[in-house]
Design a protein around this nucleic acid. Sequence first.
DNA 1: GAGATGGTTCGGTTACGATCGAAGTATGAA
DNA 2: TTCATACTTCGATCGTAACCGAACCATCTC
Lengths: 241, 241
Amino acid sequence: MKEGPDIAQIGSLIGDPARANILTALMGGRALTATELAAAAGVTLQTASAHLSKLESGGLLAQRKQGRHRYFTLADDRVGKLLEGIMGFAASRGHLRHRPGPKEPALRKARICYDHLAGDFGVRMLDSLIERGSISAMGEGLSLTTEGEKHLGSIGIDVSGLRSSRRPLCRSCLDWSERRAHLAGSLGKALLSNFLDKGWARRTENSRSIFFTPEGERRFLALFPLELSDDITQPEPDVGP
Amino acid sequence: MKEGPDIAQIGSLIGDPARANILTALMGGRALTATELAAAAGVTLQTASAHLSKLESGGLLAQRKQGRHRYFTLADDRVGKLLEGIMGFAASRGHLRHRPGPKEPALRKARICYDHLAGDFGVRMLDSLIERGSISAMGEGLSLTTEGEKHLGSIGIDVSGLRSSRRPLCRSCLDWSERRAHLAGSLGKALLSNFLDKGWARRTENSRSIFFTPEGERRFLALFPLELSDDITQPEPDVGP
DNA sequence: GAGATGGTTCGGTTACGATCGAAGTATGAA
DNA sequence: TTCATACTTCGATCGTAACCGAACCATCTC
């Protein structure tokens, strides 16, 4: 007696707190093991195992066996989009049940989103590029200008090489904590790699946060200036119990 | 572990089948009453009431009181976007909610949707009316032409009487199993009543399917011819687990 | 081989929430 | 006023799914 795509099944998969925690943990784009995910979800390994198999057969997760580990990731980036959408909506509704842990400020400042930079720094980077005219925003889409290609070339990004890949060069990705867009696509990935290669920043173990060295941060901020650089330094007040 | 993260709340709201039906029903953009939604969800009014208040306090629904009716709509179009995203994902994943049971073909052929005709027959009826010029489709909206008013008057529909009601005369209602529109609104209701009154068809007990008598079916098909009457007879292949 | 680590399966318990009958409230009609 | 319709609240039932302990399989190290 049911008609239409089964949104209830997807919904109930996301609707369980343990599974929601698992999915949230995987939003960073890194592959995580069942044990790590069990810890993230706050359940035992057996329970997590059951959840993971449900999520997988529901098409939300993919797993890849490597030795005696099983690495789980989101099935594809459409799942990520979907979750971002729900997170953004939930955040805007004030459904912030998110517990502000100690690592939270670092996550908010700079973190990885799939393979590119998100958080305050990610938002700032895109804003600055747009303000400068390196990237033009038309509606939902983004495109690199010739000025931008020159600009980014000067800091070591091989744009023409990126163009040859199948993946779109520029895409905007909505940040759930900021509700503002940051830069995704192959260019977003290349920029982050560039920062890491230069030693401006490094990934934090077992976390999605990205740590900028003082020198790296100085250079980053100089490279991506903003007319109205306001809320990037002040920490946000804690919300919730 | 009741302290679920943000997305779990939204997910579990969408995750209940009854609530998913309610939301799906509201995707048409029309405001519907609690009673209509109860029917759409296949639950009693009390149960629907509980679901509706949950959905509302979850920020997914808005209600507007009008006389002794309570009209519910999606809270805003961001909710619609969200649901569309989930539906799109579910559809692409092949999560079609069809558990092809024995009654399934009958449901697909002709069934009731609130108070009007849906399924193959519903789609055909609207297509035929548009092809004939009785109804003109402009974007999302439908309107009855003067030719159409004459045409339907000839088969016993009092259009001017219907106009006096508050309810819109013509509305298109998207059928998720068909992904095509059928005719809703007071005219859609009147047409179905007309068929039932004439004895062309009757409702099936405890089901949403509508049974056409052989004679009724013959007349119906004659009344609503189609240039390209193709897929109305061949049953779709089962999509099994 | 033995032992350790990573992960799954099974069985039984438990708690949550969906459901409906019945009774109660609000609005409109006669 | 009285009756009817639309909807909500209350209370109780009941099914399902989340959960964990324990046992089991798989892979790596030594």
